[in-house]
Nucleic acid binder design. Sequence first.
DNA 1: TGACGTATACTCACTGAGTAGTATACATAA
DNA 2: TTATGTATACTACTCAGTGAGTATACGTCA
Lengths: 192, 192
Amino acid sequence: MPEKISAKDRILDAANRLFYGEGIRAVSVDAIAEKAGITKRTLYYHFKSKDDLIEAYLVSRDQPNLALYRKWFEETEGELPDKVEAIFAELARSARHPKWKGCGFLRTAAELANMPGHPAMKVGAAHKKKFEAWLGEEFKDLEVQSPEDLARHIVLLMDGAFSTVLVHRDPDYLTSAGQGARLMVENAMKRA
Amino acid sequence: MPEKISAKDRILDAANRLFYGEGIRAVSVDAIAEKAGITKRTLYYHFKSKDDLIEAYLVSRDQPNLALYRKWFEETEGELPDKVEAIFAELARSARHPKWKGCGFLRTAAELANMPGHPAMKVGAAHKKKFEAWLGEEFKDLEVQSPEDLARHIVLLMDGAFSTVLVHRDPDYLTSAGQGARLMVENAMKRA
DNA sequence: TGACGTATACTCACTGAGTAGTATACATAA
DNA sequence: TTATGTATACTACTCAGTGAGTATACGTCA
């Protein structure tokens, strides 16, 4: 028998789809309530404001996204450059899906750029820091002179590719970023 | 004697400040009209819709931004890696200004991700293409095996830095991207 | 057992403030 | 006189958020 999904979960699911698909400010609370099949008043029973719901949306994406990156990395055979490039290759695959709209964290940050203290901004910043820190850890075991710098450069290429693919609607930029990331890892290993 | 600024210019100037500072969807047409010191009807006399005004905003930023990058590049003494890194150093300087809110083209693309055919999206994409093409030209004279790939990697680092600095409110990411860009140029030259 | 109290989860109907965009009139300058 | 540019005043609609109330479930005390 199918477990009944709670109203709160349905609201969060609807918020995920709409915020990611249409953008934060483009989506009204009414639209989310309607998509979730509840009244707006019920939505406000579970979340105290739209801002609160935006934050919950990003919190709900934090761990799943990081887990995906880790999975792609770990399941790839080969050397470190191959594993890093594989993340970009998988992202390029995702980007070919018509519903793909870039990185939800980056797009939310762009929309809320005029509200630096917004709770969702903190969630987004923490998410990106976690990814960078994880990459740094993966580089630590190798004889690379500065794993932190290398991790940061990879992060920059990745976030650049997210943005650029969104602008041009061309996943090749993700492939190109993967190639760039591979070069940076190889050169860092060579120098050591 | 100060030339009287036309209503149209004042509207465009107000749109620039508000769209860049607050975001596209966060700013109402009424707010722009008020800031320009004219009535909303006058705004609609000069621009046929808000979308039209958004497009005009990006068009007005296209050449000035490209000119700045070129200026920073040309005025820097030294070798190619120095000139490329200089662009990032100057951007890092800009990013320390409290009014800095990232790249207007990228932020607009993020906000309008659900309207891929929007005229402003085309302006943004063309702007980024022009920058990439210019960089590619600058790399052509050198004995680099693929100036296009190198230019693209630099673009990815730059757009990544725009986004990441916005997320973390930390201009160091632009400096780090400049260091990464220098490395990529140096390694590309070495390989030739 | 059953009457009462209370917490959870929900709905209907509404508010005041904005939203993009427009009908119409008036002024000024060629 | 006619085109250009401006203003007042408006429409029809959407926005985030709320006041007031309801159905159901659970616990506890007589």
